[in-house]
């Protein structure tokens, strides 16, 4: 199967949020209890029951409204994915179609994926079971159950304006370049973290960070260290417990550093 991608063209998005609802519909995710916090945006954040969320941002110039930005927040499906690197149980993996898939049965609920994701996407939730508290990660699945059967993802299917498009990644990149040239925009996601499988077309005048997109997302060295050095080393040492402890220490340390930096 060929490598696929989703195009999000912010210049065509009108913020109707049909994608957000279609995601919940197809994936049978429950509505969350929310409140109006002085914004159209809701729920406030991604969660294990909200895998796609539209962000709204008012941009002003000289005190007047200049534009209203609508941005997609969901898994970027990186080629060089920190979550896949960091996942100790190999629950997260690269699907042959390019996106980041996961096997929830294997998830140990460690949270490293969330910790290392440069886009702050995966979310964990704990549920009480007979065996105690069980923690599991959830995120956008790229509608694997649809795309592997030749369907487009639910969000793409419902988009009224064509702001979301699903196709071969090569084709999506061409479309993104063409569109960017047409509207004097920029393409995001082509090369960062090895290339993402959600490609954005953004207005050139608007800083990608206003869209919540880091200028230069990186796979944290720690995640790489874990997968490429520590884990093989760990197997050699055979000290799985020790390894876990070492990892926990490093994650905790990373958290402290992030908090210090104000995230």
């Amino acid at each position: 199967m060929s490598e696929k991608a989703i195009l999000f063209d912010a210049t065509k998005c009108m913020g109707c949020r049909a994608c957000q609802v279609a995601c919940k519909g197809w994936n049978e995710l429950p509505g969350e209890e929310t409140s109006n916090r002085g914004t159209y945006e809701n729920p406030p954040d991604l969660s294990t029951t909200t895998w796609l969320k539209m962000k709204f941002g008012e941009v002003s110039s000289n005190g007047s409204i200049a534009t209203w930005l609508f941005t997609r927040r969901a898994c970027m499906h990186c080629t060089d994915a920190a979550c896949v690197k960091a996942c100790p149980t190999k629950a997260l993996y690269y699907h042959e179609m390019g996106f980041v898939a996961y096997n929830k049965d294997l998830c140990s609920g460690c949270g490293y994926c969330q910790e290392f994701c440069p886009f702050d996407v995966p979310r964990l939730a704990s549920t009480k079971t007979d065996d105690g508290v069980l923690s599991k990660m959830d995120k956008c699945t790229f509608c694997a159950d649809r795309v592997t059967r030749g369907e487009v993802p639910a969000c793409v299917k419902t988009c009224p304006t064509g702001a979301l498009v699903f196709d071969d990644r090569d084709r999506i990149l061409e479309m993104a370049d063409d569109r960017a040239a047409e509207v004097n925009g920029v393409v995001y996601g082509k090369d960062v973290v090895g290339g993402t499988h959600v490609i954005y077309v953004l207005d050139r005048e608007v800083d990608p960070e206003l869209h919540g997109l880091p200028k230069d997302p990186k796979v944290p060295a720690l995640a790489t260290a874990w997968k490429d050095i520590l884990q093989p080393a760990g197997y050699v040492l055979g000290g799985v417990v020790a390894l876990g402890l070492a990892m926990n220490y490093m994650v905790a340390r990373a958290r402290m550093v992030k908090e210090k930096e104000g995230r």
């Binding site: 949020r17 957000q20 609802v21 919940k24 519909g25 429950p30 509505g31 969350e32 209890e33 929310t34 409140s35 109006n36 159209y40 809701n42 729920p43």
Partner: peptide, 12 residues
Amino acid sequence: LPWLVELMPEMF
């Protein structure tokens, strides 16, 4: 409908 109430939960 819970999905829509989630999006626009309150009179504003």
